[in-house]
Design a protein around this nucleic acid. Structure first.
Lengths: 188, 188
DNA sequence: TGTCACATGTAAGACGTTACATGATTTT
DNA sequence: AAAATCATGTAACGTCTTACATGTGACA
């Protein structure tokens, strides 16, 4: 399960469950979504399996925290996953499913407006990703090529996300144009 | 839940559970994966909810089949979903998660080989999608623009899938080149 | 007689979502 | 005193995966 592996990956420095959740939201959510309750459940399981150590630490803010860190077994498990072949997911893309059956409505304006809304949403996602990328690339003259090896890989994931969104936005643009032409030709 | 909606969408003609599964594999799997056991479970639930009618039919081949068809309620439920705004999924992309932490291995050859394998897999997926698209576009002079409205929407989903894969393959190509240059510069 | 394609289902467990519960510290 | 942030968790429910169970008809 990749959630487990991602948690192990983030624990290159010891973190609490709460900190893991903030890392997910800030750095990971563009390619992996996780709920807080899932994270706590996985941490418990990984500790039971001997992948993680847990140390209680009183915090200056709020109640005591549990700080998790990698064991040798956890690191080995992570590295094995990193050396696996690229894992291709089963796809489940809601908006493509909607588009697939939207012909049933026999309503070109609906399809057009759907594609325009989709494009807008993707533009908003792109904006957010680009701002993360901008912050990450700040103060770095030759971003991302001169980054340290680990940060470089993170930058690659941002770049892939940006590239995928740009491609989808362009597809929307082409398809909206094509649809408008078809509608115009059928209603002369 | 989109699986329910997709099943309703496929039932524009009455089908058995088995036929639904073959439709999924042939036409739907490039944007939605479903296991056979999920389909039977959903069919049972949708029938209980009054979205589907069920008729038993003896087949010339094999045991008796259950043929499902849409009720008015099911059609209304489907159409409401089609008029919803574009539903954006929570992302979970395994290979990006792997890439994100692959810097830990400190092994440029591993990253390079990972990207090459990824590119190859995406090329294979692209080949399969293009062959579906080719068959679907056969005997149609002005494919896809002159297709009937419903088929046209299906063709759009193929086109989106092809476009996304091509974009990802190009990203792999660019990134492999960039990585090789970095490795060469660091090992002169 | 074996195996392939047809055909329908159940069971157990893993994973994911949503809502709720609890409580400390800091800020307004 | 109220609200925001820090911090950790549980409960209930729903979905998905994997494996298994059952049986027919056609064909080699």
């Amino acid at each position: 399960m990749s959630l487990d592996h991602i948690i192990l990956g983030l624990l290159r420095e010891p973190l609490s469950g709460y900190e893991l959740k903030t890392h997910f939201d800030k750095m990971i959510s563009h390619f992996w979504a996780a709920e807080q309750s899932q994270i706590y459940r996985s941490l418990k399981k990984l500790e039971q399996e001997g992948m993680l150590n847990c140390a209680e630490a009183s915090s200056s803010k709020g109640p005591t925290r549990k700080i998790y860190s990698l064991t040798a077994k956890g690191r080995a498990f992570l590295h094995q996953w990193l050396r696996d072949e690229p894992l291709i997911d089963k796809v489940r893309v809601n908006f493509v499913a909607q588009l697939c059956f939207m012909g049933d409505l026999e309503d070109p304006q609906q399809t057009l407006s759907f594609l325009e809304q989709l494009q807008l949403k993707q533009r908003q996602s792109l904006g957010m990703l680009k701002s993360i990328d901008y912050v990450f690339g700040q103060s770095n003259p030759n971003y991302p090529d001169s980054l340290p090896w680990r940060d470089y890989h993170f930058a690659l994931t941002l770049d892939m996300g940006i590239s995928a969104l740009e491609s989808r936005i362009e597809w929307c643009e082409r398809t909206i144009t094509r649809l408008k032409r078809r509608v115009a030709e059928e209603n002369p």
